[in-house]
């Protein structure tokens, strides 16, 4: 599903990624772990086409992200890769349902169909009763659930989550991680999740550890 080959990236004199390579199989949840500044976010940006590597390639579902132009990368994010952010990234003036509906509006999905899918996704993330509430009326965990629902709205092949539990307490974070685990299984998506929480790591199918821009450890977990 995802193939990263020899990716390097530097900003000025600072080399952030050094020849990073690994693959992610479809339908798995891979935890990308490492300390702050280790290059996790940069690598995730390469995967979604938000940034370009200086060297190497990133293949998503067979498509070379690094070869895509601006429109192609936008299309990639719209159709195949969805993001979930540490800061949730919800539009504050929109309700939970409207936030979830954004990817569907991008595809000009008819209103009735959009509303049905939004309702199903909110139900999936356990927020069926919070559809009309705006982000500032929801708790952090609820906001992140809305963000996950929004990420799933476009039926992506790959879900990229950057520290999705970073701003949540342990209990909420665990529930969000469990939700991610659940949607990977129920929706059949592939997930690449960056985290440094050992508890979260246990829910992943595989852990790729990155340190100083290099993959230092890559192992499948037991569970």
């Amino acid at each position: 599903m995802l193939s990263i080959r020899g990716v390097s990236r530097s900003y000025g004199s600072s080399q952030v990624l050094h020849d990073v390579s690994f693959d992610v199989a479809a339908g798995t949840l891979v935890a990308l772990v490492g300390r702050s500044g280790s290059g996790k976010t940069t690598l995730l940006n390469m995967v979604g086409g938000l940034d370009r590597p200086d060297a190497g390639t990133v293949l998503v579902d067979g498509a070379d992200v690094t070869a895509l132009d601006e429109a192609g990368r936008s299309r990639l994010r719209r159709d195949k890769v969805s993001y979930v952010f540490q800061t949730f990234g919800l539009v504050p003036v929109l309700s939970a349902a409207e936030n979830v509906g954004i990817p569907l509006r991008m595809r000009h999905t008819p209103r009735e169909e959009r509303e049905k899918r939004v309702a199903r996704l909110l139900d999936l993330v356990g927020l069926a009763g919070h559809a009309r509430q705006r982000p500032d009326e929801l708790s952090g965990g609820q906001q992140q659930r809305v963000a996950i629902a929004r990420a799933l709205a476009s039926s992506p092949r790959l879900l990229v989550a950057d520290e999705p539990t970073g701003q949540l307490d342990a209990e909420t974070g665990l529930s969000v991680m469990a939700l991610l685990r659940g949607v990977v299984e129920s929706e059949g998506v592939t997930a690449l999740v960056s985290t440094h929480d050992p508890v979260m790591m246990r829910l992943a199918d595989r852990i790729v550890r990155i340190s100083d821009g290099r993959v230092t450890h890559d192992e499948e977990t037991a569970g």
Binding site: G48, L50, E70, A71, S74, R75, L76, R77, R78, D79, S82, Y83, F85, T87, G89, L90, V91, P92, I102, P103, M106, R150, S154
Partner: peptide, 15 residues
């Protein structure tokens, strides 16, 4: 931040 997230969701710069 909101603009950045919209771009992450697949909106082009022009959009």
């Amino acid at each position: 931040g909101e603009v950045a997230r919209l771009r992450s969701l697949g909106l082009t710069r022009r959009t």
